[in-house]
């Protein structure tokens, strides 16, 4: 139902690197779960609107005004690595 190859593809999309063991386990478990959710296909949903959200709220706007913001030091306080006022990450290019 879901192949090892699918699992590898999805893991890459999700930015997860899985061990060979994990790949095997997830292939089996995700297949079981997908088999169970296949039940939804029994239902005829022609003409039914999808519900992404239960509240009748749409486009909640606020005024475009500058509010209070965290000071830079607080923003960076949890950073695994920082340099000056920046988050530091490994080489990108």
């Amino acid at each position: 139902m879901i192949s090892l190859k699918d699992v590898e593809h999805v893991a890459l999309l999700a930015r997860l690197s899985l061990t060979e063991d994990e790949k095997q386990v997830y292939t089996r478990q995700l297949s079981d779960i997908l088999e169970h959710v296949r039940k939804l296909q029994d239902l005829n949903t022609d003409g039914i609107q999808p519900t992404a959200h239960v509240l009748p709220l749409q486009n909640v706007f606020r005024e475009d005004r500058v509010g209070e913001h965290l000071p830079v030091d607080q923003v960076l306080a949890n950073a695994p690595e920082r340099q000056d006022n920046f988050f530091k990450v490994p080489k990108i290019i």
Binding site: Q41, I48, A52
Partner: peptide, 14 residues
Amino acid sequence: AYYNKALKVRTLIK
């Protein structure tokens, strides 16, 4: 097949 179908079923449940 999966996500959008589930949202429609959510409507039926609601």
